[in-house]
Design a protein around this nucleic acid. Structure first.
Lengths: 198, 198
DNA sequence: AGGGAACTGACACGATCGTGTCAGTAACAG
DNA sequence: CTGTTACTGACACGATCGTGTCAGTTCCCT
């Protein structure tokens, strides 16, 4: 056996990339194999062969989307290593507010919502996993004395909530001025708090 | 003509209520007429007669869900009349965190996400409308000198973001302790800010 | 050269979808 | 009694869905 999803072949990753761009444009809700295959110059037969069935394809697409998310998280952990929650939040928001990330973030919201409503299927656990991912990386940005304990958990939970709530607003209204102003206001509050604790 | 959706008959509202409970439990994503009709003791024929077509039914269901939301907003405007954003946010969060509202809020997130991905269809404008609804009622809770101007807009945008982000977290993790702690932390920051401005 | 693995095309199957058609019943107005 | 209006049942249509079947091609490995 070769377990297609475990060690993907070149053709598989190539088609997955094309399918990924397709769902970024069309959404996952009413994804159908035949239109997708036709759009990316393939066939349902090939998709079935490479991904097993539709659920396998959707799972692969969600993992692909999550890879983009994890890339940002990894940058936050190492390369740009922000010191403190405020700095981390500022960098994350710059990424979230960038125009070129809108399709990905719309897809993210869609998968998040779906995994809340239907705990079964390929979506299973998407929402919970992504919350944990983000809380982990935010925790890594907190200084040591603050990180542990419920207070630190509440602080990073709050930062995550602000970023996600602002994202929802931005995706709906496209009013970047107002939403970014709100986020920056929160950043100011966070920094004031940091200075107070220092 | 009798314009079914304009002045609904008794039978229509009765069936709509049953269908509403059904979608609260099963979600809107893969809603299908035949299983729905069978579950609520009706038939596809009747649903088509009363709501025109599937889109009409979905529209009616979304309006029904929005009615629940508007009921809360109306209470905030008049009966409980909170003074200041912090008090308003506290009351809203108590409502959002209540167990019995989970199905409604899951449905809300689903509709919000879908309206972002597919701007056409029955979902059209749901996300934008709900953002405006909430910003309006939050504005009504702000004192007069603060309400106008970009600072006031940023403040209520921030409150809305915290509430919605916290809601997303709560729906995914069901960890009410941690999320509520985060919200209350923000409420404390808000009140401190209010005292500073007074 | 040959054989097996990877990949692809053409087509059909059964299920389910939204919707249309034709009729039928109950209530109520004239 | 009659006609109109509101509502409902039974059934079929065409489209589309995911998936299975059978065959072919390409290409690398020994």
């Amino acid at each position: 056996m070769s377990s297609k999803t475990a060690n993907p072949s070149a053709r598989q990753t190539q088609l997955l990339e094309a399918a990924y761009e397709y769902v970024l444009a069309h959404g996952l809700a009413d994804l159908s194999l035949r239109p997708l295959a036709e759009a990316i110059g393939s066939s349902t037969r090939v998709l079935m062969f490479l991904f097993g069935n539709k659920d396998g394809l959707v799972r692969a697409l969600l993992e692909r989307a999550r890879a983009d998310e994890l890339a940002l998280l990894a940058r936050l952990r190492h390369a740009d290593r922000p010191a403190g929650l405020a700095q981390a939040a500022e960098q994350v928001w710059a990424w979230l507010a960038a125009d070129e990330h809108r399709p990905l973030l719309r897809l993210w919201v869609e998968a998040y919502a779906r995994s809340l409503v239907e705990p079964d299927g390929p979506w299973a656990g998407f929402a919970g996993t992504t919350v944990d991912d983000w809380l982990d990386v935010l925790a890594a940005c907190q200084p040591q004395p603050e990180r542990d304990g419920e207070d630190g958990a509440a602080r990073r939970t709050l930062v995550l909530a602000v970023l996600r709530g602002a994202l929802l607003d931005l995706l709906a209204t496209d009013d970047e001025r107002r939403v970014t102003a709100a986020v920056h206001r929160q950043l100011a509050l966070l920094r004031r708090e940091d200075r107070g604790n220092a």
